[in-house]
Design a binder for these strands. Structure first.
Lengths: 139, 139
DNA sequence: TATATTCCCTCTAGTAGCTATAGGTTCAAG
DNA sequence: CTTGAACCTATAGCTACTAGAGGGAATATA
């Protein structure tokens, strides 16, 4: 099967300009072109794009994905590195979740006050103005 | 007290170019200048910057903060709007946390496999290539 | 074969929220 | 009065796209 860029977009849910962007960034390899210079992808291109999309959905950076793609093209290389990239990303993710949970806690506190009056005495605004009112260890 | 931009930066932990950026974005009001055109801030400027920093740490957008700043300058306005901004942000945050937790789960699964061999049979890479291997509802 | 519609091409610029650099001026201390 | 740190503006860069202009290519129908 041969796919146009639009077909690829439809099948993967990745938008057309994004596919071209991935090509520019070296994630997608430049495909063959039709006589009229339009991109023509094979099954291989479809699989590569699925890989990229999946990794992006998991929050991996373009740079990380480039590493993984390079690794996957050298099957003799040790798997260790791929594992490390994923593990490093998991750590980042867990740190981010922890931080967001702290923020959630403070926002809940801030929005929990009684705010029926005027801005002059607004709990939300006072809480933001005075960091000392909060638990203090975010950021 | 009068502060230079550097003093303000030191006291709030916000970098100098960032303070100027906030001025450009309309969050900080343009301060008085010295005879040699350098910014001179008052206590008011320091407080405003603390407010902004705190809100940014909570993940509020520049746009949201601009609204809050505008509100806080009109003490007769109802507090309701400020409350809504914070509440809306809390919802976003909770959605983000939920999503990241899903990703965490899948990344844990991916990195949990035995990956001592070569890339050719790497679990990490296979899992990324084949979305059908995962629980499927992320993204 | 003509035409209409849909698709595709490249290139440029815009988004958020900064950060970094270049090239020059001012302030404060000694 | 000189030195060195701090400051100024303006511009460009970062991530990961997205949108638009202005045009060519592919395809379906008449």
């Amino acid at each position: 099967m041969i796919y146009s860029i639009g077909e690829l977009a439809r099948r993967t849910g990745v938008k057309i300009p994004t596919i071209r962007y991935y090509e520019q960034m070296g994630l997608m390899e430049p495909p063959e072109r039709s006589s009229g210079n339009q991109r023509r992808y094979t099954q291989h291109g479809l699989e590569r794009l699925s890989f990229i999309r999946h990794a992006r959905q998991l929050g991996l950076s373009i740079e990380d994905i480039r590493e993984l793609v390079d690794l996957s093209q050298r099957p003799e290389r040790p798997c260790h590195e791929a594992h490390q990239i994923a593990a490093r990303h998991l750590e980042n993710l867990q740190a981010r979740i922890a931080k967001l949970k702290k923020l959630e806690k403070e926002l809940k506190r801030i929005t929990g006050g009684s705010d029926t009056g005027q801005v002059g005495a607004c709990h939300v605004i006072r809480a933001l103005a005075d960091h000392s009112l909060c638990d203090g260890d975010h950021g």
